Structure formats: C-alpha cells, structure tokens
Simulated assay, not measured.
Amino acid sequence: MFVRTAGDRDLAAIRALLVETWHATYDAIYGPARVTAIAEEWHSIAALKARLTKPNSEFLVADDGKRIGGVAFAESIDGGELVVLKQLYVLPTLQGRGIGGMLLDEVIECFPEAQAVRLEVEKRNTHAIAFYEANGFVRSGDAGERARATGEATLVYHRPLAG
C-alpha cells in the first residue's frame, strides 16, 4: 500500500470502504439501521467530495493499485498548531498490517507546523482506542463534538508532536 491524496475518482471506493468499515465497527454500538443512516449522511458522495477542496485539510487514501484499503481525513485549526483527525479507517480484512500507521504518519507529515493531533473515538470502540494509544495518543477528555452528533459516549485523545 502507498498513501496518496484522494481524488474525485476515488470517491465511490472511499464510500464503499467507509460503509463496510462502519458496519463492521459500529453495528454493535449503534445497531445496523443507525449505522446505515449515519453512513448515508456522513459518507455520501457529496459529503466526501466536499472534503477534497476543504481548506487547511488533507484527505488521504492507502492504495495498492487495485483497491483502496484505508482512508484518513484531517484538518488544521488554531492557526495550524492543532490537527484534528476526523477519520482514519482501514478495511476490516486489512487491519493489523500497518496501513493505519502509514495513514497516521502521512497525516502528521502533511501538517509540519502542527504541535499536536487531536481525535475523538467512541468509548466502546476498544480496537481503535488500543491503536491510538499504541501510536502515542493520551486520553485528554470526554464527550467531544462527535458525541453530540451521535449520542454515544466518546473520548478525546491528544498526541503532542515534536516541533
């Protein structure tokens, strides 16, 4: 897999990846019907397309030339000092192969002025929490923006970056 910037031609594959990954990850948390509804809103082609041109952001895919195996989206705030990781998902069949780490590393490289990365994760998503903690993130709070959108308890994590 190699990591590159997402483009228009990737949107259908990104959407399919997100729908599959969301069902695998969140059906047990939200239920399949709620996951489908969230995916229709958050992972529509129009919503994904808007990310391609969003200022101060990076939309990345992990690609092996045949398929997209992972996706990440992040944006900088506070004058570029803080990166907010909004999405990092890897196809369930490809998890545990370093793709998530590659995407995370590339997100960080895309924002050289950043002092820290922040993210939010569902409290019951123990697999993702373990991944982020293994990659240097420390829990710094509860109930962020995503909790308000989903109603599910979330945790906020930060990772300081060497400047």
Rank of each mutant, 00 (worst) to 15 (best):
I68D: 05
E109M: 02
A116S: 15
D64C: 08
P32L: 08
A37H: 13
I68Q: 06
L17Y: 09
G65D: 13
H43C: 06
L103M: 05
G70W: 07
I99M: 10
H23V: 09
Y30D: 08
S76E: 05
F137C: 07
L103C: 04
R124P: 13
T25P: 10
L11D: 03
G7R: 12
L91N: 07
Q87P: 00
G7A: 11
E120D: 04
V84E: 10
H43T: 00
R97M: 12
V90M: 12
E20D: 14
E109N: 13
K49H: 10
L17G: 04
G163E: 14
V90Y: 10
R34C: 01
L103I: 00
R118H: 03
R124C: 03
G98H: 00
A37E: 15
D63L: 06
R124Y: 06
A143F: 04
R148K: 11
S140G: 05
G100S: 10
D8W: 02
E109T: 10
L88R: 09
Y30R: 00
E106N: 12
E109L: 03
N135R: 15
N135S: 13
G96Q: 12
I99T: 13
G136L: 09
D64V: 13
D10I: 04
T126W: 05
T21Y: 10
Q87Y: 07
A37C: 03
L155R: 15
F73K: 08
T36Q: 11
E120I: 06
V84Y: 08
G70N: 09
H158K: 14
L52F: 01
I99W: 04
A114W: 09
Q87D: 13
R124T: 11
G96M: 07
A130H: 15
V83W: 13
N125H: 09
A37R: 14
K66W: 03
L94P: 00
V83S: 04
V61Y: 06
V61N: 06
L85I: 01
V61E: 07
H43Y: 14
R67H: 08
G79Y: 06
A153W: 02
I68N: 05
A24M: 06
R159I: 11
V156E: 10
F59R: 07
E20A: 15
I68V: 14
A13G: 02
H127N: 11
V19R: 06
E58M: 07
L82Y: 00
W22M: 01
E41N: 12
E20T: 15
T36V: 14
V83I: 15
E40V: 07
A37V: 08
A16M: 03
T36G: 04
F73V: 01
R34I: 06
M1V: 14
A47T: 12
V19P: 07
A143E: 14
D8F: 01
A162Y: 11
A24F: 07
L88E: 10
Q87F: 04
T53V: 15
Q115G: 15
D64G: 11
A6S: 05
L48M: 12
A28N: 01
G100E: 12
F111E: 08
D105T: 12
I14M: 11
P55R: 00
H127G: 08
D8N: 11
I29N: 00
I77N: 00
Y89I: 02
H23W: 12
G101L: 03
L85A: 09
E75G: 06
K66F: 03
G70F: 13
S76V: 07
E20Y: 06
V90W: 09
G79R: 05
G101I: 00
I29S: 00
A162D: 14
A162K: 15
A47P: 01
I108T: 13
R159D: 05
